[in-house]
Design a protein around this nucleic acid. Structure first.
Length: 487
RNA sequence: GGCCCCUUGGUCAAGCGGUUAAGACACCGGCCUUUCACGCCGGUAACAGGGGUUCGAGUCCCCUAGGGGUCACCA
């Protein structure tokens, strides 16, 4: 097999969409697996809609996911330039070639005229196809009109009969009838190529061996193949990956929540979790296996495993997976990610870095996203401002509540808070002496220290909080519990 | 609407002519436990419908239905 070269070719008109990210991932895995090259190409031939910010955002998103490229706008390569806006001369050359060969022609029809024809076709319930008025305009006449300031588009002269078959690596052979095609536009009146023309020139020029892209491009493929043929070029292999759908099976859009990888990043998902989840959305190795490292994915990835049917993405499962990766991640790493916000909320001062990391270590195992960590662990850094209502009923308003809280207080006062193990031992021993269950002390302490009924292990919480803080908080709780009684 | 693709539980998804039709998420029980989460055990739940082909069909073919894509001087 010739050298494997694939590409990811986003148009920088928005963010890196989760579907685009998956396409990029599949291309990346394919390139890495077969020791090929991945090229990143910016399809910015629509100057008006493209922006540098968007391009930067997309590249940033890819990098965050760990998907690197071997050639691209920012990486020298032998097949550049890698942004369409820098390739106008190349397009021009092949456009001219097709016109010289009579395979394409200038079209001067006004958009008003075309719109009217389309409307007429619609009213007649007929399919609209460009009628080919300008096919007969001679080259010299066309040149003269251009000299005189007209700005024609260029149309490709499509065949009017025959069947064209796309050999798709995922879908098999897909047939299209040429009769349905009209003379589509390959260059706009501003001189820029349209998508269908630019991809062909670029994929050929960049020696792309496999075009792995979203299914939305399948219907365009016949046009592109016609162009390859007209230009006398060998076809790449095609593989059209099905789309990712929203839970209601409609196209994924903003109203379905996060759709871009930057949003997932901002909402506290880990890149390795997103990669793992995306890899399994629409691809399967056939094995009964949920967790995959990047190198395992590279090793097992294959186009055969890509599903033909569209996949609905399930945020719950992503969350579940992220939770697992969060547990596995080091507290240091997560703490760094939270640093800025933790500072803003006053959770970290100059000498409390260590405490913050300990809290992160305790809390990260029980949440699904990084962003939940600060709220989940807020009581480690802020005084308890209220107590869980149900908790109060159970642990602060019982007959013996005060007694138990006072026992807890005494326990803290007498302990040296030497270690988690020690604390536990001391508490259990005290419970035994009092002839009560350890839980009878533990629950009130948890509520007193955190205001909550669910926290990490109570002895860890005590240790992190420290002796003085525990004593203060239990004292406050005693006062609060008594105030409840007197009401 | 024309053309194209797709169709196994709510979701992902295994299956590639012969299986009691895996597994995961979610959901519901139970266990473990100081709570929550994790973990463990168990449960509910699927081959869109109809025709063929075949000894035998989730697996092959056709039709219908539903979903998606595409028909731009957007990509």
């Amino acid at each position: 097999m010739d050298k494997i070269r694939v590409r990811f070719a986003p148009s920088p008109t928005g963010t890196l969409h989760i579907g685009g990210a998956r396409t990029a991932l599949f291309n990346w895995l394919f390139a890495r697996k077969y020791l090929g090259k991945l090229v990143l190409r910016l399809e910015d031939s629509d100057i008006r809609r493209s922006s540098e910010d968007s391009a930067l955002g997309i590249m940033d998103g890819l990098r965050w996911l760990g998907l690197d490229w071997d050639e691209g706008p920012d990486v020298e390569g032998d097949f550049g330039p890698y942004r369409q806006s820098d390739r106008i001369d190349i397009y021009r050359k092949y456009l001219d070639q097709l016109i010289d060969q009579g395979k394409a022609y200038y079209c001067f029809c006004s958009s008003e005229q075309l719109a009217a024809e389309k409307e007429a076709a619609r009213l007649a319930k007929a399919d609209y196809r460009y009628a080919g008025h300008c096919q007969t305009i001679s080259k010299s006449e066309a040149e003269e009109r251009i000299q005189n300031g007209e700005n024609p588009v260029i149309r490709f002269k499509s065949p009017t009969d025959g069947v064209l078959v796309v050999h798709d690596l995922i879908r098999g052979e897909v047939e299209f009838n040429n009769r349905l095609l009209d003379d589509f536009i390959i260059a706009k009146s501003d001189g820029w190529p349209t998508y269908n023309f630019a991809v062909v020139v670029d994929d050929y020029g960049m020696c792309i061996s496999h075009v792995i892209r979203a299914e939305e491009h399948l219907s365009n493929t016949p046009k592109q193949i016609l162009l390859y043929q007209a230009l006398g070029w060998e076809l790449p292999q095609f593989a059209h990956v099905s789309m990712i759908l929203a839970p209601d099976r409609s196209k994924l859009s903003k109203r379905h929540g996060a759709t871009s990888v930057q949003e997932f990043r901002d909402e506290g998902y880990l890149p390795e979790a997103l990669i793992n989840y995306l890899a399994l959305l629409g691809w399967s190795s056939g094995e009964d296996r949920d967790f995959w490292t990047i190198s395992e994915l590279i090793e097992r990835f294959s186009l055969d495993g890509i599903s033909r049917s569209p996949a609905v993405y399930d945020i719950e499962k992503l969350g579940w997976m992220n939770g697992h990766y969060l547990s596995a991640a080091s507290a240091d790493r997560i703490a760094i990610m939270l640093h800025k916000e933790a500072h803003r909320r006053g959770f970290i001062s100059d000498h409390s870095e260590d405490k913050f990391i300990r809290v992160v270590a305790l809390v990260k195992n029980r949440v699904k996203t990084i962003n939940e960590i600060l709220n989940e662990g807020s009581y480690f850094f802020e005084p308890v401002s209220s107590y869980d209502e149900k908790g109060c009923k159970k642990y602060f308003q019982k007959e013996n509540s005060s007694t138990l809280l006072k026992e807890a207080l005494k326990l803290c006062q007498e302990s040296d808070f030497f270690s988690v193990e020690n604390l536990e031992q001391e508490l259990r021993q005290r419970a035994e002496e009092l002839n009560i269950k350890a839980a009878q002390l533990i629950h009130p302490i948890r509520l007193a220290l955190s205001g909550r009924t669910a926290t990490p292990g109570i002895f860890e919480v005590m240790e992190v909080l420290g002796k003085n803080e525990c004593i203060d908080r239990i004292n406050s709780a005693i006062l609060y519990a008594e105030s409840l009684k007197s009401r």
